[in-house]
């Protein structure tokens, strides 16, 4: 499963889901789906999100299996 830090970074920069959605040209609902892990975004959207949240894709998204291996 794909895990992410979208919610955490969005809160850090004080963005609402709608704000972030407007920046990356998607609906608020789509940001919510991503945060909940209900939906894996495309590479294009992942890159846009990483740019909007001033980070890189690897820091924003990772696989749950990798998280387990690292522990």
């Amino acid at each position: 499963m794909l895990k992410n830090r979208v919610k955490e970074l969005r809160a850090r920069y004080g963005f609402t889901q709608s704000d972030l959605g407007k920046q990356v040209d998607v609906t608020r609902q789509t940001i919510a789906f991503i945060e909940k892990g209900e939906f894996s975004p495309s590479i294009t959207l992942s890159l846009k999100l990483a740019k909007a949240l001033q980070t890189n894709v690897n820091d924003l998204f990772w696989l749950e299996e990798d998280e387990k291996h690292e522990k």
């Binding site: 040209d25 998607v26 609906t27 609902q29 789509t30 940001i31 789906f33 991503i34 939906f39 975004p41 495309s42 959207l45």
Partner: peptide, 9 residues
């Protein structure tokens, strides 16, 4: 189908 999230549901 406004975006990929909506297309997904």
């Amino acid at each position: 189908e406004q975006d990929e999230g909506m297309t997904h549901i």
